[in-house]
């Protein structure tokens, strides 16, 4: 989550970051992070989670 937050400034608005996380809380907490930080949760595939930068 911290690495996702740190990576965001280096991502252009509209682009997608793929997060690889095997933490059992990730499937819940990455969408929650997106909601709290105003970013878009795109999709999850196993341990991969795609997040689009909106702002």
């Amino acid at each position: 989550m911290i690495r996702l937050a740190k990576a965001m400034p280096g991502v252009a608005v509209g682009e997608i970051v793929r997060v690889l996380a095997d933490d059992p809380a990730a499937a819940n907490d990455i969408p929650a992070w997106c909601r709290m930080k105003g970013q878009e949760f795109v999709a999850a595939d196993g341990h991969a989670f795609d997040v689009r930068r909106l702002s």
């Binding site: 989550m1 059992p24 809380a25 819940n28 907490d29 969408p31 929650a32 992070w33 709290m36």
Partner: peptide, 16 residues
């Protein structure tokens, strides 16, 4: 448990 709370998960709110 090693898993986050089922209540927080059901609500879709941050668990950590």
């Amino acid at each position: 448990t090693l898993r986050p709370s089922h209540v927080l998960e059901a609500m879709g709110v941050l668990s950590h």
